[in-house]
Computed example of a mutant assay.
Amino acid sequence: MTTKPLLAPSGKLFVAIALIEALTWTGLLVGMYLKYVSGTTDLGVWLFGRLHGAAFLAYVVICFIVGSRLRWPMWALLLAVLAAIPPLVTWPLELWYRHRGLLSNR
């Protein structure tokens, strides 16, 4: 029987910030729909634009910290940073990294 490796503390941090980054992207996309498609309000863009900007910057910083602590190969670090650019990619990337064991102490 094979057990999955436990997440390292820095791996748990990466999981949390990847989820937060994806959720704020979702909020921003909904806000953009409300502002530009339905024309009802720009509050969502105002709020989630700020939250997502902070989450994006935090995610990039955390990528470098976690990549260094868990000794990620360069491709893993580069892919993690690039995943923050398109909408909602950080969350599936986190699941894939967890599956590959990149978020646990080896």
Rank of each mutant, 00 (worst) to 15 (best):
L28C: 01
V15T: 14
M74D: 01
K4P: 07
T26F: 09
L43A: 03
D42P: 07
S68E: 09
L7R: 07
A76M: 00
P87M: 02
I17Y: 11
M32H: 12
S38W: 03
V15Y: 09
L103M: 12
T40L: 05
W96Y: 10
L19R: 09
H99D: 13
L82M: 07
K4G: 10
L70A: 08
L103R: 11
V30T: 09
I17P: 14
V81G: 03
A55N: 14
T2I: 06
G101A: 03
G27V: 06
S10Y: 09
K12P: 07
L95E: 13
V45C: 04
F56A: 10
V89R: 14
G27S: 05
W91I: 09
F48H: 09
M32P: 13
L29N: 12
H99L: 10
C63R: 13
G44E: 14
V81K: 02
P5G: 05
M32D: 10
K35T: 04
L47A: 01
W46M: 08
V30Q: 10
I85K: 10
I62R: 15
L79P: 00
L51Q: 01
K35G: 01
A76Y: 00
V45A: 03
A58L: 15
Y59W: 15
R50G: 09
R106E: 12
G11H: 12
G101T: 04
L28P: 02
V81C: 04
A76Q: 00
L79N: 00
V81A: 06
L7E: 15
L6R: 11
F48Y: 11
V61M: 15
W91A: 08
G101L: 03
C63L: 09
V15F: 13
G53I: 02
L23P: 06
L57T: 13
P86K: 09
P5E: 01
P9N: 06
S104L: 03
A76R: 00
M74V: 04
Y33V: 14
E94L: 08
F64Q: 13
F48A: 04
D42N: 05
S104I: 02
L7V: 14
T41F: 07
W25I: 00
G49H: 01
K12E: 12
Y97K: 02
A84Q: 05
L43T: 03
F14C: 11
F64C: 10
L51P: 01
S10M: 09
R71C: 06
V45H: 01
I20V: 15
W75F: 04
G49L: 00
V30W: 14
S104H: 04
G27I: 07
W72H: 00
R71F: 03
T90F: 06
S10F: 14
L77H: 00
V15P: 11
L13A: 11
K35C: 02
L28H: 02
A8Q: 07
M1T: 12
V66H: 06
V30P: 11
L28F: 03
A83N: 05
W96A: 12
F64S: 10
L23V: 15
I20S: 06
I17M: 14
V89M: 11
